[in-house]
């Protein structure tokens, strides 16, 4: 009698374990982002208290010639804007980076009214693309580079501190 009960339990256990194993093998079929959370983050980013404020009119582009030219914009698109490299500061202001070609990549320096310097360099070769953003903010703050795969390397600096964000991506070549 006891043996039969034991066998029954074995069978029930086996069936339960099979069902659990099947459920365990189910991979998440949905997206890796939530529109609701994305919308929430956009909202709070816009309302985050600014630690320092930059305005578009305060931005100077130095040492890079005819920045607004159409042909230049096209070159930049190939090098970096295809990856949606966008710089945003902690007051929510968003800057599209416009760079000039230099050697194997492109570069540019943004100087803000408060003296914050963003130096951007891109380089391509050996099957990878590298984007480097050097930041020096006299008043400190947070800078983030957003990429089209959703990653968003970010760096917070104290007043006067130097920092660097470097992104390396295989080009698949």
């Amino acid at each position: 009698m006891r043996t039969r009960a034991h066998h029954t339990n074995d069978g029930a256990d086996r069936r339960m374990n099979e069902l659990l194993e099947r459920a365990r093998g189910r991979a998440w079929p949905g997206p890796d982002q939530s529109p609701r959370v994305e919308e929430f983050l956009r909202g709070i980013t816009m309302h985050a208290r600014p630690k320092f404020t930059l305005t578009r009119s305060a931005i100077l582009l130095v040492g890079i010639g005819a920045v607004a030219g159409g042909s230049l914009a096209a070159a930049v698109t190939h090098t970096i804007m295809n990856r949606r490299a966008v710089l945003i500061t902690d007051d929510g202001t968003r800057y599209d980076l416009e760079l000039v070609e230099s050697g194997e990549g492109a570069s540019g320096t943004f100087v803000a009214e408060d003296g914050t310097v963003f130096s951007v360099n891109t380089a391509e070769g050996d099957g990878q693309q590298q984007v480097t953003v050097d930041v020096n903010a006299p008043n400190g703050g947070t800078s983030t580079v957003i990429l089209d795969d959703g990653s968003a390397p970010s760096v917070r600096t104290e007043p006067g501190q130097d920092a660097q964000i470097r992104i390396i991506k295989p080009t698949g070549e």
């Binding site: 991979a27 998440w28 890796d32 939530s34 980013t45 945003i88 947070t142 959703g150 390397p153």
Partner: peptide
């Protein structure tokens, strides 16, 4: 800091949604 939190969210959303999917068996609910 929404930007720092955004990095954590992007890093873990898929794993958390996957856990909830396996837990509930319902993708929309998860």
């Amino acid at each position: 800091d929404p930007e720092q939190f955004g990095v954590l969210y992007r890093r873990h959303f898929g794993a958390v949604a996957g856990y909830l999917y396996r837990r509930t068996g319902d993708a929309a609910l998860a």
